[in-house]
């Protein structure tokens, strides 16, 4: 195995890169010594060049390609966009993306908020939080493998009375224990999309919990104490004191999860490959661009993804501004 050359490549890359930066800074220092007043350009220069090559140019190119045919040749107007919004397969893709984006944020945030409140100042809070948050640290591919195993389905028809088929997926085993029939979770539309969404909820609830917990702890103690002295307790405390105080954080969490869901790719690609009507925009983009060799449609899907993200972010920024009183 060629471990050594790879590691050497890595060290070289870091050294070359460091040297380039050192030369640029050296030139900047020289420029300053000679009385140059705009040293800032030397500092931002390398980043701006990379951003122009890596983000701005490709984004414009993709926008351009979205009005061209499958091979990126002749101009086809808005045909690619028309097919996204009329083709029955593409409509399923849009439907699923909408489901992901609407269902996941609210469920994950609700669970995260509930848990944050339940464990707030409880014994072993740190451990309790780590348990929920840990899924954030692992890859979506790893999470998909974990859940594919949970959903594993063995057809009971393949067994005999002497050697019945044993379920190895926990969820189907629980169904069997309760007297039900094993169910193939990833096969039947539209429910299979919800079972994929469960994986995202499992991951994002920890994110919601962490952010909301931090913001609950930041509520000034005197507000809570004053409400308490007025006899406010339990659910009223949540409704009139806690929730209004953490509202900006809730908005950030909801929008962040919504954006992650709009772009969801790894879970769908790993668990179903987008088959059985579980396809979503990001996966359809990948399939069209790199498997089906339909550049035009792929580009249009990427642009649609981009356009869908914008209003969520604008809303997010506006809410932040409003809460900062600017």
């Amino acid at each position: 195995m060629d471990v050594a050359p790879k590691l050497l490549d890595m060290v070289w890359a870091i050294l070359i890169f460091g040297a380039v930066i050192a030369v640029i800074l050296g030139l900047a220092a020289l420029y300053e010594k000679r009385g140059g007043r705009r040293a800032g350009w030397w500092f931002v220069g390398p980043s701006l060049v990379l951003l122009a090559i890596g983000l701005v140019y490709p984004a414009l190119k993709t926008l351009w390609n979205s009005f061209r045919d499958a091979a990126g040749g002749s101009f086809v107007g808005i045909d690619n966009y028309t097919s996204i919004f009329t083709n029955s397969d593409e409509l399923v893709v849009l439907r699923n993306t909408v489901l992901w984006t609407l269902v996941t944020p609210f469920v994950a945030t609700a669970i995260g908020l509930l848990y944050a409140i339940l464990v707030d100042r409880a014994k072993g809070e740190a451990v309790a939080k780590a348990v929920i948050f840990l899924p954030m640290a692992i890859s979506l591919v790893g999470a998909s493998i974990i859940w594919k195993f949970m959903y594993d389905f063995r057809d009971p028809a393949g067994g005999t009375t002497k050697h019945p088929i044993q379920q190895i997926g926990l969820i189907n085993q629980v169904i069997v224990w309760l007297g039900g029939k094993p169910y193939n979770f990833l096969l039947n539309s539209p429910w299979n999309t919800f079972f994929l969404i469960v994986v995202m909820i499992w991951i994002q609830a920890g994110f919601a919990m962490t952010i909301l917990s931090a913001s609950i702890k930041a509520i000034p103690a005197d507000i809570v104490e004053a409400a308490r002295l007025d006899g406010v307790g339990g659910f009223q405390m949540f409704r009139f004191v806690t929730f209004p105080s953490i509202r900006p954080a809730v908005v950030v969490v909801l929008t962040t999860i919504a954006i992650a869901c709009l772009k969801v790719f790894d879970i769908v690609r790993t668990m179903t490959g987008g088959n059985f009507d579980t396809n979503v925009i990001a996966n359809e983009f990948y399939s069209q661009t790199f498997s089906a060799a339909n550049q035009g449609l792929g580009a249009a899907l990427a642009v649609v993804l981009f356009v869908l993200v914008i209003p969520i972010i604008v809303y997010n920024v506006r809410q932040l501004r409003a809460s900062e009183g600017r």
């Binding site: 090559i53 701005v56 490709p58 984004a59 190119k61 990948y286 993804l305 981009f306 972010i313």
Partner: peptide, 23 residues
């Protein structure tokens, strides 16, 4: 320029993949 860089955060990387690969 700073606002532009800030705004670039929202660009989904899907938008960049094929042109970058070609490059």
């Amino acid at each position: 320029l700073f606002v532009a860089v800030f705004a670039l955060q929202v660009v989904p990387i899907q938008v960049t993949l094929l042109p970058l690969l070609t490059l």
